[in-house]
Design a protein around this nucleic acid. Structure first.
Lengths: 147, 147
DNA sequence: GTTAAAATTTAGCCAAGGCTAAATTGAATT
DNA sequence: AATTCAATTTAGCCTTGGCTAAATTTTAAC
């Protein structure tokens, strides 16, 4: 099999690998968004977000949450004092809100195309992090037309 | 704040955490599917799948591919002899085909709702792994109706 | 005000998926 | 056939996101 030139290969690869690289780098961001969204929900519903609640909802051990919260604090998304509930910073709220918005758009869209509410709830959780603004716009447009 | 009973908490948590746990456990599966799909494509297009091509397309170092291919072999999805191209086993082909089918359904669906081809290509890559059979059916139905 | 229970944190472990650098093997050219 | 260059593999490292078990701190009940 004849070899392609190095340059040809490289440029082709750049194009091709972009989606994959994006998918992969998203993974760390996904978790952050899940945490922040959940914390925002807990604060709205229960008045505060405790580590244990986060752990329960995410289906993860307490220690895992502690570690993650420390990271969220380092990144400036939450504030916390030892043994107390966590607060979202302004930036934390912004990310959480953005996530909730995406989430809602995707979930409503799935409902609009006829998916059951249970499935819409589950699938939107997975999909929300991988949808570009453009796709989100199209989803919202479709949903609005249907309602 | 009054405490809920342990039982109430636990059952609520079980419900809530299901989607998250699924999203997380998917991550390992996702990569496997990406590799197998890509290998299948390479075999179809170029007649064989070499480690370097996989690395280039996934935007990942050679050594990373080697390690992953070893895992794919252990799981029985591919066969390989040292310094030679990899082959898909029957099971490997099945997974690759399933992935390609999902991928195609999602991509065509995105196109059908008006997303640009570039975005459809990118987003479908991320979304494909998080779509249930039910949602996939609805997407296919919608696409067929539009065409 | 003690004490018991629950929540939180710490410590230390593991596997997955990345990387670079160095060693090895295969293939192509001369 | 020897050499050179590209591909592959090995070795060793790192980070992330999990876990359990043990220690600590709050909170609630008495």
């Amino acid at each position: 099999m004849p070899q392609q030139s190095k340059k040809a290969k490289a440029s082709k690869a750049k194009l091709q690998s972009a989606p994959f690289r994006r998918t992969r780098s998203d993974h760390s961001t996904e978790l952050v968004e899940d945490y922040l969204e959940l914390i925002a929900d807990l604060i709205d519903v229960k008045g505060e977000a405790r580590g244990t609640d986060v752990a329960l909802r995410l289906g993860v051990a307490n220690a895992t949450v502690v570690k993650m919260l420390k990271r969220l604090q380092d990144k400036g998304f939450i504030t916390q004092e030892p043994y107390r509930a966590v607060m979202l910073t302004t930036e934390g709220w912004e990310i959480a809100e953005k996530g909730r918005r995406r989430h809602a758009v995707v979930e409503n869209f799935l409902l609009a195309i006829g998916v059951s509410s249970e499935t819409a709830r589950i699938d939107s959780e997975g999909i929300e992090h991988h949808v570009s603004e453009e796709t989100l716009r199209m989803m919202a447009r479709f949903t609005n037309r249907k309602s």
